[in-house]
Design a protein around this nucleic acid. Sequence first.
DNA 1: ATCCTTTGATTAACCGCTTGATCAGACCCT
DNA 2: AGGGTCTGATCAAGCGGTTAATCAAAGGAT
Lengths: 341, 341
Amino acid sequence: MSSEHARQQVTMRDVADAAGVSVATVSHVVNNKKGARIGQDARQRVKDAIQELGYRPNAMAKTLSSGSSNFIGLVADAIATTPFAGQIIHGAQDEAWKHGYVLLVANTESDPAAEEAAIAMMLEHQVRGILYSTWFHRAITVPPALHETDYVLVDCYEPHTRAPAVVPDEVQGGRTATELLLQAGHRRIAFINTTSPSPAQEGRLAGYRSALDAAGVAFDEQLVLYAPSEQEGGYAALDTVLARGATAVFCHNDRMAMGLYDRAHERGLAIPGDLAVVGFDNQEVIAAHLRPPLTTVALPHYELGAAGVRRLLGIDGDGDGDGDGAASLIPCPPVLRASIT
Amino acid sequence: MSSEHARQQVTMRDVADAAGVSVATVSHVVNNKKGARIGQDARQRVKDAIQELGYRPNAMAKTLSSGSSNFIGLVADAIATTPFAGQIIHGAQDEAWKHGYVLLVANTESDPAAEEAAIAMMLEHQVRGILYSTWFHRAITVPPALHETDYVLVDCYEPHTRAPAVVPDEVQGGRTATELLLQAGHRRIAFINTTSPSPAQEGRLAGYRSALDAAGVAFDEQLVLYAPSEQEGGYAALDTVLARGATAVFCHNDRMAMGLYDRAHERGLAIPGDLAVVGFDNQEVIAAHLRPPLTTVALPHYELGAAGVRRLLGIDGDGDGDGDGAASLIPCPPVLRASIT
DNA sequence: ATCCTTTGATTAACCGCTTGATCAGACCCT
DNA sequence: AGGGTCTGATCAAGCGGTTAATCAAAGGAT
């Protein structure tokens, strides 16, 4: 039920008339044009008229005549599955806003048709560029239409291509998680990896091994297990972890850690006393409120979104570590809580 | 790093020239204008030319000349705090899309300045209307600028006003949760309410009482406790719940239930054997993976977003229960899992 | 043959704003 | 007094479409 709004848009014409000047003059003061020569009095009269009438420039007209819009499109495969996608949107929106851009959002549920429609819509709206994002780090193939404009892949990448992408540094993340345990003095560190093939699966494992190497701890194949990356997986894996004689465990993600906690409590084990644990993702709702609160490594979703627009806009910014030149690697910082010694 | 795109927009003029007709003709076939009389041959030539050149209409120009845009603005106070806001965006986006609209999203973090800027931006983009949403159900006061266009409050409302709003039916939700327990034969049902004053606090309590009444169970003040609506609150409340002799408990939200589970396990209690529990919110990541999976009542965020755009567009749709005429109440459906007998 | 309809397609004004080109007047030199 | 420079502000041509009004040609009726 929309109320009636006889809202007759106040146009630049109106302001010009009210101020007794031409629209050109109004345009000049509105945009604070540098080269324009406008007298103090006229400038003031225009400003007053704008206030008086409550004038708001018409962004469409502006875009049309100036030739460049201030839209940045964001197409996501699953906007609401986890708070993750939300963080990407959040980061992208903040950064875009900072540079005078506005976010146009579309959700596709990974449906190719919806995806194409979304991209078409954005192209028609003359977006400055498109951010194509996924809710978990994975390989994708770029939809053809995307090539009609500038774009950046966020939290995903196209293998064997130089398609610009921004992804989390899984290897560094895995290394960081492991180091946290190493630094606490642990030597028999288990790693419960996910069963789903993915950059995270490979990357975190690589990081785990690299940290072990660096610390001079021999890699023991017996200590890396595979389980579904959910509570159930962690719950089921704990017994094996213990059987293998580990004193600490690195869970592929926080949800797994949550399930593992349950089983540990069931067996009367104390965390971190009997077993130190570190998670991954930093899924607030879970990690911050487990007992004890879970030490983990954060997936930098907000940063991914922000870095995505920076990359799109060609602003290299804070020199985020570069990957192979096509993919920027965003660091995964540790989040210290209480599940390690 | 945006690649270079010498992308010279293909315009209607180009299509017209290629097809050997006027732009008016092209416009007519593109929009499938009803009154227009275009011959089969010309129509075909235009379509071919469009294919050939890869023409895409310029939405800005269209909006400008036709006078009405296809944007719907969504301003949210916290896009990423929980998956909740994401669901609202998701629902709004799906429904908007369904009616040919596109979502313009802005995040404000509850900062009044950001809020004003966001609304201004949307107004400048000639949005059809604005959805003003919050990530948890609460009372707000409508920012003045919102009155310059059509709007609908989503998951929030303005007291003592006829401001159109769409909110979850907390009372029905509370009643539903309680009924779930009642139907399982419980009579001493505790309710751990939140300590934060809110529509949820009042509404769910009212629902709890109404369900009790309807079942002929006397209300026992001793059975309603108050705790912070987080894991810690639920954890701490369990002992009291038991001390008061309850056989079932209705937690104000899933997070509380999660904490309560922890304490229950610690005390060696079986759920639902020794204690039945029902949550609220249906926060997937948690509820679906607790042991045992938590029966709960869902907060219909997706529906809130969708109903919001329907209301904005004046589509009454499936006659969602009406509140006082200003606020539409969206039902909170039960989600059956395994925490009740 | 003549006049009226219909059909098929074009004209041109307009949407609100941007911007290079142009213009009128004031001021300064010589 | 005549010519050159500034200054302050206006003109007018788009930007890419939409749409009411108009027009030309063909077919029908008388």
